[in-house]
Measured scan of single mutants.
Amino acid sequence: SIVTKIISIVQERQNMDDGAPVKTRDIADAAGLSIYQVRLYLEQLHDVGVLEKVNAGKGVPGLWRLL
């Protein structure tokens, strides 16, 4: 499923980069989806406690990390 793919992308990127959070844009590119589509999935995963959003604010790139 797309959700499983997104989780594995975040996991893979974090492992490659010493646990650093992953940008929404990088996840979207790797999943082959638009940034808006991916954001909806990321928000859902956040709501159920799978991911945390590391930063927030208007015009700030979203950074995500697995919990």
Rank of each mutant, 00 (worst) to 15 (best):
V54L: 06
T24I: 04
Q14N: 06
K5Y: 08
L45G: 07
K23S: 15
R13Q: 07
Y41T: 04
Y36N: 11
A31K: 01
L40P: 11
G49W: 03
I35G: 03
D29R: 13
R39N: 13
M16V: 08
N15P: 02
W64V: 01
L63K: 07
Q44W: 15
G19R: 06
N15L: 11
G19E: 04
A30I: 06
L63I: 05
L45Y: 01
R13S: 04
E12Y: 12
S8G: 10
M16H: 11
R13K: 11
D26K: 03
S1D: 13
D17W: 13
K53P: 04
D26W: 06
A20E: 08
L45M: 06
R13C: 08
R65Q: 07
I35C: 07
D18M: 10
D17E: 12
A31H: 00
A56M: 09
L51S: 02
K53G: 03
V54T: 07
G57F: 05
Y41G: 02
I9G: 00
I9M: 04
I7E: 01
G32Y: 04
K58L: 11
G32L: 04
L66P: 03
P61S: 12
S8L: 11
T24P: 02
M16P: 03
L45A: 02
D26V: 08
R39D: 06
Q11W: 15
I6Y: 01
R13N: 03
R65N: 05
L40G: 09
D29N: 11
I35W: 08
T24N: 02
D29A: 12
S34C: 06
I2Q: 05
V10Y: 01
V22T: 05
G59M: 05
V48T: 10
A56W: 07
S1H: 12
E43C: 09
L40F: 13
D47Q: 15
V22P: 02
L51V: 09
G19L: 05
V50R: 05
S34L: 04
I27L: 03
V60P: 10
D18N: 15
V60L: 12
V50Q: 05
K53T: 03
P61R: 11
A28I: 02
D26E: 08
Q11C: 09
G32C: 06
I35L: 11
I35P: 05
L63A: 13
A31Q: 02
I9V: 06
V22A: 05
N55H: 10
V50F: 05
A31G: 02
G59Q: 06
L33N: 03
D26A: 14
W64F: 01
Y36S: 13
V22G: 01
A20I: 07
I27D: 02
Q44M: 15
G59W: 04
D18K: 12
L42Q: 00
V22I: 08
A30H: 06
G49N: 04
V54Q: 02
N55E: 09
H46I: 08
I6N: 04
H46V: 15
T4K: 14
R25K: 14
G59C: 08
K53A: 04
Q37K: 11
D29H: 10
I6A: 01
D26Y: 11
R25H: 08
N55T: 09
E43W: 08
L51W: 02
Q37Y: 07
V60S: 14
Q44E: 09
I7H: 03
V38T: 14
M16F: 08
Q11F: 10
I27Y: 08
L42E: 00
V3F: 14
I7K: 04
Y36V: 13
I2A: 04
P21W: 15
Q37E: 13
E43I: 06
E52M: 08
V3T: 08
R13I: 13
Q14W: 05
V48Q: 14
W64I: 00
L66G: 02
W64T: 00
S1V: 10
V60D: 14
R39S: 14
A30S: 07
G49Y: 02
V38E: 00
I35E: 11
G59D: 09
D29T: 12
Q14A: 07
D26N: 03
R39Y: 10
L42A: 01
D26G: 01
E43T: 06
A56Y: 09
H46Q: 12
E43F: 06
A56F: 08
G32T: 03
P21Y: 10
P21H: 04
R13L: 15
L51A: 01
K58S: 11
H46W: 12
G59F: 06
L63Y: 09
R13F: 14
L45H: 01
P21E: 02
G32I: 02
Q11S: 09
G49H: 05
T4W: 13
N15Y: 10
L33S: 02
Y41N: 00
E43L: 07
R65L: 08
V22W: 04
G59I: 04
L67A: 15
S1K: 10
D18Q: 12
L42Y: 00
E12C: 11
V50S: 03
D18Y: 13
Y41M: 07
Q14L: 05
G49L: 03
L42K: 00
I6C: 02
S1L: 10
I2N: 04
G32M: 06
V38K: 00
A20S: 09
V60Q: 15
T24H: 01
A56P: 11
V22H: 01
V54N: 01
D29I: 13
L63P: 02
A28Q: 02
L67M: 11
E52S: 06
R39P: 00
R39G: 11
N15K: 12
G19M: 06
A31P: 01
S1Q: 10
D18T: 07
S8N: 12
G57K: 10
A28E: 03
E12K: 09
L67P: 14
R39K: 12
I27R: 01
V48M: 15
Q14F: 05
S8P: 00
G62E: 15
P21I: 04
D17S: 15
V3P: 03
L45E: 00
T24R: 01
S8K: 15
W64C: 03
S8Y: 10
I2W: 13
T4H: 13
K58M: 08
I9W: 04
G19Q: 06
N55D: 13
G62T: 15
K23C: 08
Y36G: 12
V3M: 14
Q44C: 14
S1N: 12
G62P: 15
N15F: 11
K58W: 03
A56C: 12
K23N: 10
S1P: 08
A31M: 14
V60I: 10
K53I: 05
L42S: 00
E12W: 13
R25L: 08
S1I: 10
Y41S: 02
E43H: 08
R65F: 08
K5M: 13
V10A: 01
Q37T: 13
G62Y: 15
A28C: 03
Q14V: 05
T4C: 14
K23G: 10
A56L: 10
P21F: 08
L45T: 01
V54E: 02
V48F: 12
G62I: 15
L51M: 12
K23Y: 05
D47G: 09
P21T: 05
K5A: 08
D18G: 14
D17R: 13
S8C: 14
I27H: 01
E12P: 00
L67R: 15
M16S: 10
Q14P: 01
P61M: 12
M16I: 09
